[in-house]
């Protein structure tokens, strides 16, 4: 096989080298100018608030009165002694586990289905992605109607097949499941699209070679497709975990943390402490715990993935 090799660049002349050295600072300046909007934005909108949260967590700080006092670690001690915090943390982890498992599985399944290509697959893909760009408020209003206890569409439908459906959003054991499923249905289209792009980047030759060797469809999926999708799965899992831990609007609009705190998750709890009780210090201490939880889960996923198959 003949391969073409790019011809090497001619060596720069001494005078040209000197010229480049003379103007090198301008190149550096250009580079800094190009990245400065991103860096400034990051410093002002991400790093600054992040540092502020850590500082506020060491203060007694009332949003309404503006009174501030240094209290050391007492906000953290108060968090650890707050029984509701543990319930809220458990809710957040339950929501995250349920959402990630359901979202990633469903997204992969839908992507595999769409990758086969069938009549109407474009419409199907558009349908699933439409919910991603639908406003959270509209989505919640529609689902609150669907999930009504007596006259909700879902229970009416279940009634036709002889099932007496529960009061989905008013019973603690069903409320969490309801918010997870409705959230998955809203956002699964995004992960599905990411998986679809990853599937299209896998060369067909691998599957063809395996088929020649006698592998079944399930075998190809298990031994070739899923392992090759591992980096994508890691990426999808990380963004789904972080967005699940940060869920707020969906909870506010669907259940406002009820019933009986069954869907009260960490960010909603932080919001209440900060903007209903005006206790910014305590809310910041909770936010530090959230940061640690998100960081811990992300690192754990990296490590598990690293051990299984280095990316």
């Amino acid at each position: 096989m003949v391969t073409s090799r790019p011809s090497p660049m001619p060596p720069p002349s001494a005078s040209h080298k000197g010229g480049r050295r003379g103007w090198a600072w301008l190149d550096t300046l250009h580079a800094y100018l190009f990245i400065s909007p991103q860096v400034l934005g990051f410093l002002a909108l991400v790093l600054g608030p992040l540092i502020a949260v850590f500082v506020f967590s060491l203060q007694s700080r009332n949003l309404l009165t503006g009174r501030v006092a240094f209290v050391g670690l007492s906000n953290f001690r108060a968090v650890l002694g707050d029984r509701l915090f543990y319930a809220v943390l458990t809710n957040s982890l339950t929501f995250t586990a349920g959402l990630v498992a359901l979202n990633v599985t469903l997204a992969l399944g839908l992507a595999l289905l769409l990758a086969r290509g069938f009549r109407g697959s474009t419409a199907f893909r558009t349908l699933f992605f439409a919910s991603v760009i639908t406003s959270a408020a509209a989505w919640a209003i529609v689902w609150r109607f669907i999930l009504q206890g007596e006259h909700g569409v879902l229970n009416q439908f279940l009634g036709l097949v002889g099932i007496d459906g529960p009061n989905w959003l008013r019973e603690p054991r069903w409320a969490m499941a309801s918010v997870i499923v409705t959230r998955v249905l809203k956002n699964v289209g995004l992960n599905m699209t990411i998986y679809l792009a990853a599937l299209k980047s896998i060369p067909d030759e691998y599957a063809e070679a395996a088929r020649v060797d006698g592998a079944s469809g399930w075998g190809i999926l298990r031994a070739i497709t899923i392992p090759l999708l591992a980096p994508t799965t890691l990426f999808v899992s990380i963004i789904t975990v972080t967005s699940a831990l940060q869920v707020f609007d969906h909870i506010l609009l669907m259940t406002a943390g009820g019933p009986e705190n069954a869907t009260n998750v960490l960010v909603y709890y932080i919001y209440r402490q900060a903007f209903q009780f005006f206790d910014i210090g305590y809310a910041s201490a909770l936010a530090v715990f959230l940061f640690i939880a998100a960081l811990g889960l992300t690192l754990a996923m990296w490590m598990v993935r690293g051990r299984a198959a280095p990316v």
Binding site: R144, F145, L147, Q148, G149, E150, H151, G152, N167, W168, L169, R170
Partner: peptide, 10 residues
């Protein structure tokens, strides 16, 4: 009595 709009109903 079931005469009041119940919880979870609009």
């Amino acid at each position: 009595d079931r005469s009041v709009v119940p919880p979870g109903e609009q």
